[in-house]
Amino acid sequence: MTATTAILEVIYRVEPGCLGPQGADYIEDFCKFSQPLVTSHTAGFMRWILVPRFDKSLPEMQCTLAGRSLNPAQAARYFALYQANADDLEAELNEQLTLLIDQYFGRW
């Protein structure tokens, strides 16, 4: 498997506070609820992995390829292979998560 055919896994740590003052009570279920919905709208070369962000010392976003962690420069080069930008993809994910929060809490 070459780097251009491997699936990039992007761990995205979701802040409990995005779910409101009681977010810590819901964040794990929210991540499980959101994962398949986010996956269905993800570019084919990568996969988002949503996890709660309980440890603030860990980065919000972390990329791995074939089980190896990538530093930000390496991740940027991988995204560039697919004419993609990590910041743009993260912004799209955040838009999705905003809609999913409303869906999770039954607001629409």
Rank of each mutant, 00 (worst) to 15 (best):
Q96N: 06
D102E: 12
I7W: 00
K56H: 14
S57Y: 05
C63D: 02
G106I: 12
Q103S: 15
L37I: 14
E90M: 12
V10D: 00
W48Y: 08
E95P: 10
G20A: 04
K32T: 11
R77C: 11
Q22D: 12
W48C: 06
T2C: 05
A6Y: 02
E90V: 11
V10Y: 00
P59Y: 02
T64V: 13
G23W: 07
L89W: 07
D29N: 03
Y82K: 13
T98E: 15
D88I: 13
E60Q: 08
Y78D: 07
N94V: 15
L89D: 07
R68F: 15
T98I: 15
A66V: 09
S69V: 13
L8K: 00
Y26R: 06
L97W: 03
N85V: 03
E60P: 08
L8Y: 03
T2Y: 14
S34V: 01
D55W: 04
G17D: 13
T5V: 08
D88V: 08
D88S: 08
E15V: 12
S40C: 11
I27G: 02
F54N: 15
T5N: 07
V51R: 07
Y12E: 03
I49C: 09
L97I: 04
W108G: 15
L93W: 04
R68A: 10
A80E: 08
I7R: 06
Q83A: 14
M61F: 09
I11G: 08
S34M: 08
R47N: 12
G67D: 08
Y78T: 12
A73G: 05
A75C: 05
A73H: 06
V38N: 01
N94S: 12
F79V: 00
R77Q: 13
R68E: 13
L93D: 00
P59V: 03
D88M: 08
T4Y: 14
L19C: 02
F79R: 00
F33W: 01
P59T: 02
C63G: 02
L89G: 03
D55Y: 03
A43N: 09
L81D: 14
R47D: 08
S69P: 04
F45P: 00
R53Q: 13
S34N: 06
S40E: 10
E28D: 10
T5L: 03
Q22H: 12
I101P: 14
E28Y: 01
S69K: 15
E92Q: 13
T2N: 11
E15Y: 11
Y12A: 08
A66T: 10
L58R: 09
S40N: 10
D102V: 12
V10N: 00
T64E: 06
F54H: 12
V10P: 01
A6S: 04
G67K: 09
D88E: 13
T5F: 09
P36A: 00
S40W: 01
D55E: 03
E28F: 00
E15R: 10
R77Y: 12
L8F: 02
G106P: 00
F30C: 04
Q74F: 02
Y12M: 09
I27C: 02
L58P: 13
D25C: 14
Q74H: 06
N94P: 05
T2M: 09
R13P: 02
S57C: 04
L50G: 00
L58S: 04
L65E: 03
M1C: 15
A6V: 05
N85W: 06
Y82A: 08
M1H: 14
Q35Y: 01
G23V: 07
L37W: 04
Q103M: 09
R13V: 01
A84R: 05
Y82E: 08
D102A: 10
G20R: 04
W108M: 13
G106H: 11
